[in-house]
């Protein structure tokens, strides 16, 4: 990016109208990927000068134990629902989860899910890192996931969405293929980087379960309806453009007993529609790249 400039120069402007059509395998109109965040939040993290971790003095019992629910209870509930309807996950991973709760990571790997890095912990922020420190975080991510799963990570979602001005250049320098941190489009787009090449894949804050439940205060059924409307619209438009829909999840939210049933009905709808290419993030980026 162009650090310090009003326009960070992340990408070129491109209007939705008159773009070359992206074609997904088997004539599907919308590529759908599900992004479970498998996270570890520390109970007593060190302070970052630019962002507090917990809102309360440590231990923040509700904050910590709510997230712990994912790694004790709701990961399996969420994952079973996804598997039942043929949705693999593309995991936004706090890579230290490989050390803390390898059973969760192993379960995801055995289901054929893809892993990308979401930092070491979701309580360690990139703000204030120098290049050496940021490279250390990226190298740690690559090595940790490789050792735990045999996969070399291809993507990045910044830990707790904290960035530096050099993050995108650095992940491209390490050969990563995609970032999930840019929200400017409903299609895969090229990102400007100093070396190599990088794509932005549409992630989504707007239909992220955290936004649905905690920003927009949706009931479980209202959130499921939003996913269905999001899908129907993108599937319709995708017939002429080739769209991407992401469903970013947190098991401790979507996997709660009052939410999971409504969510399952949304996945059923998408799977039964016939227009969805249900895929992993890397597959979607590859299919797009092959058409550039």
């Amino acid at each position: 990016m162009d650090e310090g400039a009003a326009d960070p120069d992340l990408y070129d402007f491109s209007a939705y109208r008159d773009r070359p059509k992206i074609v997904w395998p088997d004539g599907k109109t919308v590529a759908v990927w599900v992004a479970p965040n498998l996270e570890y939040y520390e109970i007593d993290p060190p302070a970052n000068p630019q962002r507090n971790s917990w809102a309360r003095p440590h231990p923040d019992v509700v904050g910590y134990s709510h997230r712990d629910h994912a790694n004790r209870v709701s990961h399996w509930r969420m994952a079973d629902v996804m598997s039942r309807h043929g949705f693999p996950g593309s995991v936004s991973l706090s890579v230290a989860l490989c050390q803390h709760h390898p059973d969760v990571v192993d379960d995801a790997a055995e289901r054929g899910w893809e892993f990308f890095s979401h930092g070491i912990y979701n309580t360690r922020y990139s703000y204030g890192m120098d290049e050496v420190q940021e490279r250390a975080m990226i190298e740690d991510s690559i090595a940790t996931v490789l050792a735990a799963t045999g996969q070399r990570i291809r993507g990045w979602l910044a830990p707790a969405l904290t960035h530096t001005a050099r993050t995108l250049d650095l992940i491209a320098d390490y050969g990563l293929d995609y970032t999930c941190d840019l929200y400017h489009d409903d299609q895969v787009q090229a990102v400007k980087v100093k070396t190599g090449q990088l794509a932005s894949i549409p992630y989504s804050l707007e239909v992220n379960d955290h936004y649905g439940f905690f920003i927009y205060n949706m009931s479980p059924r209202a959130y499921a309806d939003a996913l269905i409307r999001q899908f129907d619209r993108l599937a319709n438009e995708g017939a002429t453009s080739g769209t991407v829909m992401c469903i970013p999840l947190h098991a401790y939210l979507i996997g709660q007993p009052h939410r999971i049933g409504a969510f399952e009905r949304a996945l059923e709808h998408i799977a039964a529609d016939g227009r969805a290419w249900i895929a992993r993030a890397g597959d979607i980026v590859d299919a797009w790249r092959a058409q550039q």
Binding site: N48, P49, I120, R124, G128, M129, D130, Q133, A136, M137
Partner: peptide, 11 residues
């Protein structure tokens, strides 16, 4: 402003 080295240690 660089973070203290301890910020990248995970005891």
């Amino acid at each position: 402003m660089t973070l203290d080295a301890s910020y990248l240690r995970y005891p």
